[in-house]
Design a protein around this nucleic acid. Structure first.
Lengths: 226, 226
DNA sequence: CGTATCCACGTATCGACGATAACACAGACT
DNA sequence: AGTCTGTGTTATCGTCGATACGTGGATACG
């Protein structure tokens, strides 16, 4: 009850802060009740964050078991980012360091992530120990999510999360399959290289350059998607 | 003067918070002075963070220009992490989202990073646009640094930063096992490569491909003429 | 030289907040 | 019936961020 009201107030707050008085008034109790239950404002916020996180996690637990751990990994990343965007204030408390007492939600998420990565490692698809990979993926995911929340001007498009996701996975996964080394994504690299030289080149007009940039981006993305 | 005292108090604070009263008393001024100068406690903290960041950045600017942009990139990452560990409270304010008004330090760092990445892209060693790579590297770097600061139990060893650094760079760099970084005519090579891949690509229509081929040829010739 | 004006600073204070002491009351057990 | 324990309330303390107000001094002006 108190947690529910506190979560509502936190979500609807503009500054991301809540006063214990407001929570108590909304819940119809006095402040000492709150302090007996949670000991501290920090404890209250930790409990709120844990509650919101669990609520979200249960939604995720429903469709967890998948044949392909890589697919689970992708979904885990996307769910993480979606949670951050859906509950920015709670997420800031979790990963922004505003809470002195660390909620257990983070450890739980890290444990799930490590489980998935261990399955990947068992399949020989991981190029590093699952613990290291888990730390790296968690750090990258939280970094991207915090950026999306805190600096929307620098991270205007939420699709950045999926790009970063693929990049992060590329870093931890063993070189998969196919083509000859160096030629796996030659077209994508070439497109990026060319784009870098485009500004200083005087072979094309400004309008041509703009169109060229768009086409190069399409080639690069198409190349990566396949 | 006020900024200096505030920075000292922030650094020596255990909770990472500073009261305006303490700052004013340490600086020997009244509170209204502080509010006239910085408008707000938020403004004061933003100024403090900017100051500490600049102080650190100037140390970095001294030895900036290197022949190998990849080396600069590595040093940038390591400096970023070192700053986070040296000034955890200021770093939390910067990247933890505790400040409402975003200091310009982050944008500045992002600009420097993008500059290095553009040099890498010009050498044909980047597999994605410099902007995307900059966002990804910054997110990963801040995520790892925040993890090191906030969850030392999960990130016990600072060497994790270098591991994550190499992983992040692996994700954004082209596979250059041949140790032939670009050479002199990276743009020309990229244009030729792209032209070769153009026929089998379905990212562009036939008409677009035709025009693209012409532009690529113009770029290649102009490049070769130099 | 005298006076008016403006600016910068300190004092005192306000309202909100986190946290707690002191007290009140209901029910269980002896 | 008496006592104890747990749970709730009211009242209050000290701190904080922020600001209204008075005051002193430097400068511009007659």
């Amino acid at each position: 009850m108190i947690l529910e009201r506190a979560a509502e107030l936190l979500a609807s707050s503009s500054s991301g802060d809540v006063s214990t008085r407001a929570v108590c008034e909304a819940a119809g109790v006095g402040q000492p009740v709150l302090y007996r239950l949670f000991g501290d404002k920090d404890g209250l916020l930790a409990a709120v964050v844990d509650r919101v996180w669990d609520e979200y996690l249960s939604m995720k637990r429903a469709a967890r078991a998948s044949a392909d751990p890589l697919e689970d990994l992708r979904r885990g990343w996307d769910n993480h980012t979606a949670f951050a965007l859906a509950h920015p204030h709670a997420y800031r408390l979790l990963f922004g360091g505003a809470l002195a007492s660390m909620p257990e939600a983070v450890d739980e998420a890290m444990g799930l992530l490590r489980g998935i990565l261990e399955r990947l490692a068992a399949q020989g698809r991981l190029r590093m120990p699952p613990e290291d990979a888990a730390r790296f993926v968690m750090a990258a995911n939280s970094g991207v999510s915090l950026g999306l929340i805190l600096r929307p001007d620098s991270y205007p498009d939420p699709s950045i999360s999926t790009d970063a996701r693929d990049a992060a996975f590329r870093a931890i996964l063993a070189d998969t399959d196919d083509s000859e080394p160096g030629g796996a994504d030659a077209a994508g690299v070439a497109a990026t290289t060319l784009r870098a030289h485009l500004t200083e080149s005087d072979a094309l007009t400004a309008g041509e350059k703009a169109l060229m940039r768009e086409w190069l981006e399409r080639i690069r993305r198409r190349r990566r998607a396949d």
